[in-house]
Amino acid sequence: MPLANTSTAVPVVVDEGKCIADKGCTVCVDVCPLDVLRISELTGKAYMKFDECWYCMPCEADCPTGAVTVNIPYLLK
């Protein structure tokens, strides 16, 4: 069966103005137990790549600059 791309709203938001991933920080990506965050090759900032979040919050708690906000995934909000 061929594959399609379906869009989905992801719960984690990164404030690019605050994120210092371009200075070598990878904290949120490191701590996420579901491994759903990445550093964008385009912007050099962190973002949520996969909609597979446990809304558990280590990414937000450990971010040194307060750039991450975890929202409740829409389906269970």
Partner: peptide, 15 residues
């Protein structure tokens, strides 16, 4: 499957 239908919205850590 949680009632929300969200695959990762489990009681346990989904990892």
């Amino acid at each position: 499957l949680p009632t929300s239908g969200y695959l990762f919205g489990t009681y346990e850590n989904p990892a």
